[in-house]
Amino acid sequence: MGNCLKRSTTDDISLLRGNDSVRESSSDQLSPPNYQEALPAQQAILPVYHPSPSVTRSVAQLTEEEQVKIAKRIGLIQHLPTGTYDGCKKTRECVICMGEFMVGDALRYLPCMHTYHMKCIDDWLMRSLTCPSCMEPVDAALLTSYETN
């Protein structure tokens, strides 16, 4: 795919050329920057990661080892079930943001059966793979649940 960072300069030309680049220059290209091709000057808008909870690095500054660690973590998190709050569950509050669940909120369920807003818990899991309520390590619990199923 095209590099959206160059978009502002190539836009007009690509439109003039017509055919193949039309989709590329559509407005949704404004969303996530292209990580691989981003220039150092663009670091301010790069996503940041936390190889460990107190370490904050932009994606361009990660070591190879940290990249692997974070990729594994993202993979694990994606294996955790998600759902939408339907208003009739036992849990009514997300203990991270102390906000009540509203019908339609995206939720994530941890193996220990604790439930949080997806946004709230994913931000935490990207720093530490433990359930904030019971401290159960999420990765170990996930592996166990695979073995028992």
Binding site: P51, S52, P53, S54, V55, V95, I96, M98, C120, W124, R127, S128, L129, T130, P132, S133, M135, P137, D139
Partner: peptide, 22 residues
């Protein structure tokens, strides 16, 4: 204290910072 930079990221997690603390 934040969880340390141990291999799995949850060393003594029960005693460390958790986002449910107020």
């Amino acid at each position: 204290h934040e969880p340390g930079d141990d291999k799995f990221g949850y060393e003594k997690a029960s005693e460390r910072w958790l986002p449910v603390h107020t």
